[in-house]
Design a protein around this nucleic acid. Structure first.
Lengths: 130, 130
DNA sequence: CTGTATCCTAGGGGATACTG
DNA sequence: CAGTATCCCCTAGGATACAG
């Protein structure tokens, strides 16, 4: 019984919020790459690391943990002598991969146009201020 | 003729990189919300601000500038006495909105499952360590 | 091989005040 | 009303060292 009006901001539709939270995940530096590399076949930790390329051990661990927490990825440990851990997409992870790939395709199809537009924009901006 | 092997990291497919870069944009705190609010009809600055809710003036400006730079959004200034600026989606912006909405639908359809899985995961993790 | 613990930095993002 | 300029904080993410 405290807040008169702003308990929930105007257009802050709860749905939009949630969607955005997940997009934040997907948009982080490695998540999409990881999902992509896992679609099709399960992969071992270092195999993933090589495939992704440029990711630090720690970030790969973090990324995979988050995905595991979301139920997107399974983690199976084989207690062999040098321990092996295999990661794979869950059903949910695979179903996510579908709209994800569609969006990826859109980006790939438009990326050169976008980059051209950025270059143009930057050129105009530079001229304006000097 | 310099670099023997690592000029481009292993799996660092250039395509994946580019897709990821755009996803970083989409995943930032406000971009998706802004695109969503602009789909359907153009909006004025403060109108957008109200609709989105919780966004600072500066972040709205930055977000819109980025979208403009990418050619997703148009900006039209009406030199009225209190200046008015209207933002709208370009054709490219509208075409992006399509796969974006599909992904949003996926998230909305799975968000409760995901949250449940997270809660479960957190509970198990907590028990394990204490 | 896989994972955790530290430490550190760059930049995203908020608040506020000021301008045309 | 729309936008810029400052200042400041917090956290994503890298490097490194260590452990099972």
């Amino acid at each position: 019984m405290d807040m008169p009006t702003p308990p929930d901001q105007p257009g802050t539709n709860a749905d939009c919020r949630k969607v955005n939270a997940i997009f934040g995940r997907l948009g982080d530096k490695w998540t999409i790459l990881a999902i992509t590399m896992l679609s099709g076949q399960p992969r071992r930790f270092n195999e993933l690391k090589r495939l992704i390329g440029g990711i630090s051990q720690q970030m790969l661990t973090r990324t995979l943990r988050s995905l595991e927490r979301d139920g997107m990825v399974t983690r199976q440990v084989f207690p062999t002598v040098p321990p092996q851990v295999e990661y794979g997409l869950t059903e949910r992870g695979q179903s996510l991969a579908i709209p994800l790939m569609q969006l990826s395709m859109w980006v790939l199809g438009h990326i050169s146009d976008i980059e051209a537009h950025q270059a143009l924009y930057d050129r105009e901006a530079k001229q304006q201020r000097k």
